[in-house]
Design a protein around this nucleic acid. Structure first.
Lengths: 247, 247
DNA sequence: CACGATTATATGTCTAGACATATAAGTCAA
DNA sequence: TTGACTTATATGTCTAGACATATAATCGTG
């Protein structure tokens, strides 16, 4: 949840509602260090008096701050500024097509290979399938302004996503198709670095031995694996950026 | 904000409060796909009737779902399930010492170089300093079970953090010191991949040309840069893992 | 002094109302 | 048909109460 981002336009200067003002006041005091970690925030009834409002209004402001982990609330004891959180960033790993077009570059897509098959032992291991079943294996490439941007190596579990059998992955990238057709409940990313092997180097048009950023993503839908994908990015030109706020 | 994580222990089976039950009910329907993106959620007064409670209770549940971007609320129109978000992960990039000890490995730290100097042009560019000033430049290494884990190359702006002048970075890693002494309000991470140069290879005890994961982190405190740090991890052994839930 | 029982209190949740406000939908005139 | 005006309605915020509950602080006892 991103706090302090309710105001759409800074110039508007419209009066925020009272509970938002209370929340922002407290948030500001915490972020500037005026109220350091451990500091006890005024009790609800004190804030009621200060802002001349009912307890529910104060409570709403404090509840949201607590939900954002900026403060900790303890019955009978009061509300306290939390210690600075573990650095944690909201790393936005968007759909690649969206990412490229958002950069104002032209998106290109080439399907390298797409085959439907009964899951091999390796496929089953990768997808965590307990039983036999069909999968789709896809290799494809994304490019921005006709420059290779990433190569993708994906497996889709058809027993979880039978609709994928009818999708045309020559036209639409599998990531985009899945994003729009399959609700997902959980995912895991693993980011690592490797040097390009022969096949990857050729697909990305870089030298063998050049660094690559690798993202492995597994996506589940209520305990069933939807898809496993590995993306190679040319490491010297691509960057993952995570911007965030913290306490 | 992570939803659906209020229950501490599944075995406890204590009755959740009503608004949490409402929130969970709706969240479940969305995540299972029973209510697909675009679906209109029952109006507040309908939910009032279904759960036999007041509007404020329903409103609290829906407000939290809206704040978590699972639903979108529009006056007069109702509340709607939002399209699956762009994948976005909470990437926890902890303090390295905490990270290593959390893995149950022994943490080691070696200060390679630490010097205080008037900011050079390069320093000023890296920290975004507009005026002259003093900085601390630190090079150090973190290890886990006596195996090199990461090398760190850091710059601290002393005009933003004068207290850092008195810290003993031979004893305490600068990341840990800063985390505990300086409140920060914003940061930016950039993740990329490179191949190890001579100096990095030596420090990490890997081969020149081996892949490295690089994390650049800039930390600000209300528009003033606190510190800029670059971390090199051996790319084939280190992994950044981001696990998350989505809609 | 140590430890258990009691009490006071701040938060957690909830109610049954209220008015404000944005806007979808309907109405009517050009 | 189109545009401007009106209206109905769902959400947004707020109030002044209520009881529940966890727990810090106090008190009493051995």
């Amino acid at each position: 949840m991103s706090l302090a981002s309710d105001q759409a336009r800074p110039g508007a200067a419209e009066k925020p509602t009272l509970y938002k003002r209370i929340r922002l006041d407290i948030e500001t005091r915490i972020l500037t260090g005026e109220w350091p970690p451990g500091h006890r925030i005024p009790f609800e009834h004190q804030l009621m008096a200060r802002y001349r409002c009912s307890r529910m209004t104060v409570n709403k402001a404090l509840s949201e701050l607590a939900r954002a982990d900026l403060i900790e609330r303890r019955r009978r004891a009061g509300s306290f500024v939390r210690r600075p959180q573990h650095l944690s960033a909201v790393l936005k790993i968007s759909d690649i097509r969206a990412e490229i077009t958002a950069l104002g570059r032209s998106y290109g897509y080439q399907l390298i290979d797409c085959r439907r098959r009964t899951a091999t032992a390796a496929d089953r291991a990768r997808l965590g399938m307990s039983t036999a079943g069909k999968v789709i294996a896809i290799a494809c490439r994304h490019s921005a302004d006709n420059v290779p941007f990433a190569v993708e190596d994906r497996l889709i579990d058809l027993s979880t996503v039978p609709e994928a059998a009818t999708a045309d992955f020559a036209r639409e990238p599998p990531g985009s198709w899945l994003l729009h057709h399959v609700p997902w409940t959980e995912a895991e990313h693993t980011i690592s670095a490797v040097v390009a092997d022969d096949r990857t180097a050729k697909a990305l048009d870089i030298a063998v031995g050049a660094p690559c950023l690798v993202i492995d993503r597994y996506t589940w839908r209520s305990a069933r694996t939807v898809t496993a994908v590995r993306l190679h990015y040319p490491g010297e030109t691509h960057r993952l950026v995570a911007r965030f706020k913290g306490g």
